[in-house]
Amino acid sequence: MTWSRHAMTYLALVVLAALTLLPFGLGLLTSFTSARQFNTDAPLSIPSPPTLANYLALAGVGFGRAAVVTALAAAVILLAQLTFSVFAAFAFARMDFPGRDALFWVYLATLMVPPTVTVVPLYLMLADVGLRNTFWALVLPFMFGSPYAIFLLREYFRAIPADLVRAARMDGAGTLDVIVHVVVPASRPILVTLALITVVTQWNAFMWPLVITSGRTWQVLTVATSSLQSRYDAQWTLVMAATTVAIVPLITVFVAFGRHIVGSIVVTGLK
């Protein structure tokens, strides 16, 4: 009975994985299909012959620049968020100051505020200082940490044995040395997990880039893909090629660092 139970479990997982991957496979096939074949053959038809015309056409509509802008914005936000979140989380986890816990819970309560509520105030503030339709308008609202990131790191930092921190301070380490040489190395799994979450979130951001930018200069991938649907009506082969280009970097990052997510969940002991 045990082997049959395992067989049924794996069969269910395979079926669910196939259902999940089917839309991505269909999009990939469509991206290599010519517009003529797509309009005449069945949707699940194998490209005959496969063509790169849809991918080559993306270069002519400014899609390459959108990919560069998206990657640069995600990289800047990632570095800034990790830096500020680590410092803030360490302060809330390991430093004593008046009102620490109250301030933390008030800050954490902002998670309940829908992001759409802050779009208009952020837009007005950045427009007033002349940053609308600039690169800094894309990244500034997300550079200084987030309640979720700080909460995640704070809980992880609190699990680090206090003896490690005390031993470092007895050796003459300052606060910055403790963070860099003790806390960060011990928190590598959760930092990688947070980095993946941040990259995926910023890579897929749509509303804020759509509101704060105009034209192609600072257009990101999500906005560029959306504009393709309106500018090239019914050319789904082109849209699927753009979607594939946007998804491949995320899949690559997840395959390369996905094991760290499991490592951050597993409870480990530190000596």
Rank of each mutant, 00 (worst) to 15 (best):
R5N: 13
H6D: 14
H6I: 15
A17T: 14
A17I: 04
A18H: 06
G25V: 08
L26H: 01
L26K: 08
T33S: 12
T33H: 05
A35R: 13
L44F: 15
I46R: 12
S48H: 14
P49C: 13
A59H: 11
G60K: 12
F63N: 01
G64V: 13
A66Y: 12
A67Y: 14
V69Y: 07
V69H: 04
V69M: 09
A71H: 05
L72V: 15
A75Q: 11
V76L: 11
L78C: 04
S85K: 10
V86E: 13
F87S: 14
A89I: 03
R94V: 08
R94T: 03
M95C: 14
D96C: 04
F97N: 07
G99K: 01
G99Y: 04
R100Y: 05
R100T: 05
W105C: 09
L108W: 05
M112K: 09
P115D: 06
P115I: 10
V119Y: 05
P121N: 10
Y123N: 02
L124G: 00
M125S: 12
V129N: 01
V129A: 06
A137R: 08
A137T: 08
V139H: 05
M143I: 08
I150L: 03
L153Q: 09
Y156V: 08
R158F: 04
R158S: 03
I160Q: 06
D163A: 15
L164T: 02
R166E: 15
A167T: 12
R169W: 03
A173H: 01
G174E: 09
I179Y: 06
I179D: 07
V180A: 13
V182M: 11
V183N: 02
A186T: 15
A186P: 01
I190G: 04
I190R: 00
V192S: 06
L194Y: 04
A195H: 08
L196E: 03
L196C: 07
V199G: 05
T201Q: 10
Q202H: 15
W203N: 11
F206W: 11
F206K: 02
M207Q: 11
M207L: 15
W208D: 03
V211D: 10
G215C: 13
G215E: 09
V220P: 01
V223H: 09
V223R: 10
V223D: 07
A224E: 09
A224P: 06
S226L: 12
S230E: 11
R231M: 14
Y232V: 00
D233S: 15
V239I: 13
V239Y: 00
T243H: 12
V245M: 05
L250R: 02
L250M: 08
V255G: 08
S264F: 04
V267W: 02
